[in-house]
Design a protein around this nucleic acid. Structure first.
Lengths: 167, 167
DNA sequence: TAAGTCAATGTTATATTATAACATTACTAC
DNA sequence: GTAGTAATGTTATAATATAACATTGACTTA
């Protein structure tokens, strides 16, 4: 079977895909980064990341706490927020401001300023990196303000949900 | 005196400027839009907008409530949130997600998807519109996802604060 | 191996941001 | 003047997040 290198698969998260493979690959990456960066991969950190890999839908901190509780973990707010802070700090997770919720990062390891597309219908989220988004701002802006961090979130409707609406 | 039409004055909010004139002009615009759209300009709505015009710094809802209290207005949370919702709905105010805070709109009346620049040093905020920002995302992205709303916030350091740092 | 250290997790309490639900007021239209 | 309605007032509580301190457990090192 030939491996196709098509244009960046921006909307994979919204469409049917082999999600088992998707999770497996993300998890492998995740673990590899812990090794490379000499971070401590604890059961709690792994668990939270796995929860966030479930289905490309962001989870709120208190949703995560509920899920942790079900799995026998301690589940007071600081537990979730601390692990999330850690995972965010090391680029494994992002916070979606629009939703006050958290998603697993799709491009871990790369320092990047992610752009999100958030489907208001299926509530899934896709992350695209700077190259994929094609986002550019003009020189003038740059000379006026030194940008250190960017929050870019597009809310709308995904390819799959558009398709379903038309039917 | 000649009126110069220079390139968009993106960073005015960050620099010294005639702020009295700035406020006066915003306020005039504000009132004009109420007339044109046949909205009811109540003391509370006017007051909240004036508070937000103070100095290009966003205010949190509870800060606004404190200020309202000092001015003899009622000041329980729904008071602020309702007025803010109204002002946002009609394009007079925006919420800065990064700060959970609110700013007066610089381009009222135009339906637009604003981009914000937030200085982490002086905490002032400037709003730039789509044209000024030069933000573009590529065709492919557009075909994959129908964007209805965008949240774009740049955090960094403004021209004025850079200048002060260097000294 | 006992004592010290430190990162991670556990716990209690509370801060911050936001909304639901219902009551009152005050203006408009008839 | 009263019915209808938009705006404001009030009480209570939901949802999100952090501060501060306690405990655990793995690792070090003497």
């Amino acid at each position: 079977m030939e491996k196709k290198k098509t244009s960046p698969n921006i909307s994979k998260n919204f469409m049917n895909h082999n999600h088992e493979l998707c999770v497996e690959s993300s998890l492998k990456d995740f673990k590899q980064h812990f090794i490379e960066k000499e971070l401590k991969l604890t059961p709690l950190r792994l668990k939270v990341f796995q929860l966030l890999l479930k289905d490309h839908r962001p989870l709120g901190a208190y949703q995560i706490l509920d899920l942790l509780r079900k799995d026998g973990f301690s589940s007071t707010p600081p537990i979730a927020y601390r692990v999330l802070d850690f995972l965010i700090e090391h680029g494994f997770v992002h916070k979606i401001k629009k939703l006050n919720a958290f998603v697993a990062c799709s491009h871990p390891g790369n320092s990047h300023s992610p752009t999100f597309m958030i489907c208001r219908k299926c509530e899934k989220v896709a992350e695209i990196n700077e190259k994929e988004s094609g986002l550019k701002f003009n020189k003038e802006t740059s000379s006026e303000f030194k940008i250190e961090e960017a929050i870019i979130e597009f809310i709308g409707i995904c390819k799959n949900c558009i398709k379903l609406e038309v039917i």
